[in-house]
């Protein structure tokens, strides 16, 4: 008995005061992914990386918006979205107070992005911001002015139309010069 008292005296009061005082999580704690809509370019890398499909990036029913949606209830806090996001729009935060009462939809975060339609087939294929971002990247990557002008056009063509154009160029023997 005395031994026990000695031990508890040695260690003192170790109980965390939480929830009456704030609790500080450890370094590099993986809390709720924080989404910054203004940085998101809609590249969907996070949606592909997410192992539990907590993040989905889809066109809406009217095909005029790209919907980025995150369901915190399904997230397993693995950090893959953080790892792949090229712009830092999604970063794991230290937020751990996530419980919600009665209404599950409080766990959901959404963002709606403008879509880019293909200049050939007029079908939507990606987000406008992604096109802008790609052009930005190219313009700082040491490519010539001519190529940049071309890029302005071909960034707005969807992959299927690009493929078709390449095939027809090949089969008709047209020369494409790449500087």
């Amino acid at each position: 008995m005395m031994k026990l008292l000695d031990i508890s005296k040695k260690y003192g009061d170790t109980t965390h005061k939480y929830p009456f005082e704030p609790y500080h999580v450890a370094d590099n704690f993986r809390g709720k992914p924080a989404y910054i809509f203004d940085l998101c370019i809609g590249c969907a890398a996070c949606g592909i990386a997410c192992p539990s499909n907590a993040i989905t990036v889809q066109l809406n029913a009217e095909q005029n918006k790209l919907i980025w949606e995150f369901d915190c209830g399904r997230c397993i806090f693995c950090g893959r979205c953080d790892e792949v996001c090229p712009t830092g729009a999604i970063r794991l935060s230290e937020e751990f107070e996530l419980a919600v009462k009665f209404d599950k939809s409080a766990l959901i975060q959404r963002g709606e992005l403008e879509v880019q339609c293909c200049t050939e087939c007029k079908k939507p294929f990606t987000a406008k911001r992604l096109v802008q971002y790609s052009f930005d990247c190219l313009s700082k990557a040491n490519v010539s002015q001519n190529r940049l002008e071309e890029a302005k056009d071909y960034l707005r063509v969807c992959p299927t139309c690009k493929k078709n154009a390449t095939v027809s160029n090949f089969t008709t023997g047209k020369e494409v010069v790449i500087e």
Binding site: H16, Y18, P19, Y23, V25, F29, Y35, F37, C72, E95, F96, E97, L98, A99, V100, K101, S105, A106, L107, I108, Q109, R110, G111, E112
Partner: peptide, 26 residues
């Protein structure tokens, strides 16, 4: 969930603490 999240969840259930998360739409 972190033990602190569990405690937070239960105290939220009891009404000791308020819910922090809300649905966000941009």
């Amino acid at each position: 969930p972190h033990p602190a999240s569990i405690i937070y969840g239960l105290t939220t259930a009891l009404g000791v603490m308020d819910q922090k998360l809300q649905k966000e739409s941009h």
